[in-house]
Nucleic acid binder design. Structure first.
Lengths: 245, 245
DNA sequence: TGCAATTGTCTATATCAATAGACATTTCGA
DNA sequence: TCGAAATGTCTATTGATATAGACAATTGCA
């Protein structure tokens, strides 16, 4: 791992961005924990085989994100470094899952819509396409940093008023409880990764080219009846999923 | 979903690459299944709000990857479209997991090294740092398309000769069996996503900017003793993970 | 056949990305 | 206090990226 960190040219991805991505990831992996600083620009330029100005562009981007802060004469200090671990189990819950990894958890209800189920949503919820479903758009934060954006669908008939309940409790679990569903379990999770689109970039405070970890999840009640289908989009450099079998 | 597909400028990621990524993903999601073709260049240019030449650069990149093929006078045909589903369960096995989703599975042993365990590897395998471990680098293909590249570590003492056994059987399960381990289970999986580095780009036949789904997994024998720690890197546009709870 | 739709090719121009070198400014320790 | 080490700023040059417009070549259909 001590080897040369390589970047590629003429690929449509600017060198400074490739380098920024590598450094951001290295910080997340604790590579520079000993000093609390990124190596000097001249050293990085040598490691990546590029000009010092190119490294400076990368560091400027990271500074813009609030990840590092350059101090003239000293070096480039690491400001923030976080990778939350998000467990996926039969009892997956967002807030409880993050648990003590963050001091403050927040959940914002961005939008609530009642609509007809698409083919995909109907299949996951065990409904007929066109059946009424409630869609919630939510944004979840840990210590004031956006962590994930989620789109959730619920059968409209059974969970009327879930948007209001969610807004009040900022928790799916508590919203379910208020509507008479005491417990539920995670039945299936599909994980993919993709580039973030413009809307997600803005809400998650990411820069273009950023990666999303995408979890498509279906929850059921204790009788196995689907109660929620959701597509959650996580900032890949801030979280990892853990699956304990 | 019918809305404007937006791309961003001055982000270090060329517009043509952002557009190529979007189209590749749309193809993977079956967006153009009805026609089997990508919309005309002029239409895409309008949708993305860019010049037709920029769209052409994106399509040229996808053609280079073998995903589409442009035919003058007709349009741009979709050549290949695949997203394998890879289940993660207590009994996760690569070959069996992909199962009937591909006609032909192959597994190549790229390298075998006996080395001292790093802190991370030692922790996962329950060894002392510096203990002897065998590291295997493997490349797995489905229907001649590279799917994932994996680095695996095994306790050297218990599994001496596993490289040879793997090379013979092209299967971890069968290699374990030959060495006297009849059964094993997946204990823990951590999933993250990141940009591919140069070596992985080449082996997985990806283009820079491509995303990897990364699974760090630990397998144990039936007594709960760690037998394997692996870091598998999957081409994110070719696979998804499914977790059934 | 002829035309509409579509991809292919060429020229020109402006902006972004990357390199190169020089020198200023700040910090910290010998 | 001086100097080494580090970041900050400036100029200049080259190649990649993106736009713009015009027209050629191919396909398929009326």
């Amino acid at each position: 791992m001590a080897g040369l960190k390589q970047v590629q040219r003429q690929t449509g991805v600017a060198l400074w961005r490739q380098i920024a991505d590598r450094i951001r990831e290295a910080i997340g992996n604790g590579a520079y924990d000993e000093t609390g600083m990124v190596p000097p620009e001249t050293v990085l330029a040598l490691q990546f085989g590029v000009n010092r100005h190119t490294v400076r562009s990368a560091l400027a981007a990271l500074a813009q994100e609030g990840i590092v802060r350059a101090v003239q004469g000293r070096g480039t200090l690491i400001e923030r470094k976080e990778r939350l671990s998000f467990p996926i189990t039969r009892r997956t819950r967002f807030t409880a899952g993050i648990g003590d990894q963050a001091r403050e958890m927040r959940s914002l209800l961005l939008d609530e819509v009642t609509e007809e189920a698409s083919v995909e949503v109907a299949r996951w919820l065990g409904l007929k396409p066109g059946a009424q479903v409630i869609r919630l758009e939510t944004l979840r934060e840990a210590d004031r940093r956006p962590v994930s954006k989620a789109t959730s669908w619920f059968p409209a008939e059974r969970f009327a008023g879930i948007g209001e309940a969610y807004g009040k409790h900022q928790s799916i679990t508590k919203a379910f409880a208020e509507l008479g569903l005491a417990d539920y379990v995670r039945a299936t999770t599909e994980v993919t990764a993709a580039h973030a689109d413009t809307a997600d970039l803005a809400d998650l405070e990411l820069t273009p080219g950023a990666i999303l970890l995408i979890a498509k999840a279906m929850n059921t009640d204790l009788d196995g009846v689907p109660v929620q289908y959701s597509i959650s989009r996580f900032a890949a450099d801030r979280v990892q999923f853990t699956i304990e079998n």
